[in-house]
């Protein structure tokens, strides 16, 4: 479970996020939706401990992210915005490297890697070096290395970026599977359809603030909109109108 309260972070004079707050429950998929530059990545980066917040609280399974980053990292799997992998290592070795850094080893790690390779349908290329991988293959390896230590919480920053239709569908299926297994999945996107297709809860962010949140149903009702897209536009329009 992820809980964020009044989170604030500035870069120089620019306030990237300004009092962001939301919750993401276990066994549910939560989407961070917002235009480019809204503060989605900054929020996620604070949650996965590469940035520190100026103020506010971010907790993962009750662990304060800023106070105990190492414990936080054990509890999360991360697919960052730039999900590069090592070109000279094979797919399996890429995953194994992160598994080892998470303290796994021996037959347990190999077993886990084979599990992931099967689950993500990487049998065809996981033994090859990664330098010739397609974007979709790279994202799958990056996802597998995020899952290698079987974390309860999953943070995905625009995971479908650069994926073709088939890869996107496979990713969706995987995310739904993780949800069914009781994981807490938080992912960011600026693509409405993406969020509409997957999310149980939606948090709409604009200019570093949460402008609306709730289930798709409550959002439709709140803005009297027929589609989520209308609701999204209305939410962001409202927020901009208020400034």
């Amino acid at each position: 479970m992820i809980r964020v309260e009044n989170l604030t972070r500035s870069f120089g004079a620019v306030r990237a996020i300004d009092g962001v707050g939301f919750e993401a429950q276990d066994g549910r998929i939560t989407g961070l939706l917002g235009p480019n530059g809204a503060g989605k990545s900054t929020t996620l980066r604070i949650l996965y401990t590469v940035l520190r917040p100026d103020a506010g609280v971010a907790q993962i399974d009750g662990i304060d992210v800023a106070a105990d980053p190492l414990a936080t990292r054990r509890a999360i799997g991360v697919l960052p915005h730039a999900a590069g992998i090592y070109p000279q290592l094979t797919g399996r070795e890429n995953i194994a490297y992160f598994g080892e850094l998470h303290g796994l080893g021996g037959p347990r790690l190999t077993g886990r890697i084979e599990e992931l390779v099967a689950e993500l349908e990487m049998e065809g290329y996981a033994h090859r070096r990664a330098r010739g991988y397609s974007q979709g293959e790279r994202v799958k390896v990056a996802l597998a290395r995020a899952l290698v230590h079987a974390p309860r919480n999953l943070l995905l920053d625009e995971p479908t970026n650069g994926l073709d239709v088939m890869a996107t569908r496979a990713l969706r299926a995987l995310i739904l599977k993780l949800k069914a297994a009781g994981h807490c999945v938080l992912f960011s996107s600026h693509v409405m359809q993406e969020v509409a297709a997957l999310c149980d809860d939606i948090v709409i962010i604009d200019h570093g603030r949460v402008v609306a949140s709730g289930t798709p149903k409550t959002l439709l009702a709140q803005f009297g909109a027929a589609t989520l897209e209308d609701a999204f536009v209305a939410a962001i329009g409202d927020a901009r109108g208020l400034e």
């Binding site: 996965y48 590469v50 414990a71 990292r73 054990r74 960052p80 590069g84 090592y86």
Partner: peptide, 14 residues
């Protein structure tokens, strides 16, 4: 530059 640093920094190591 390859974009693997950010992921590396999320493993439980200083």
């Amino acid at each position: 530059e390859r974009g693997s640093l950010e992921a590396l920094l999320t493993v439980p190591a200083t």
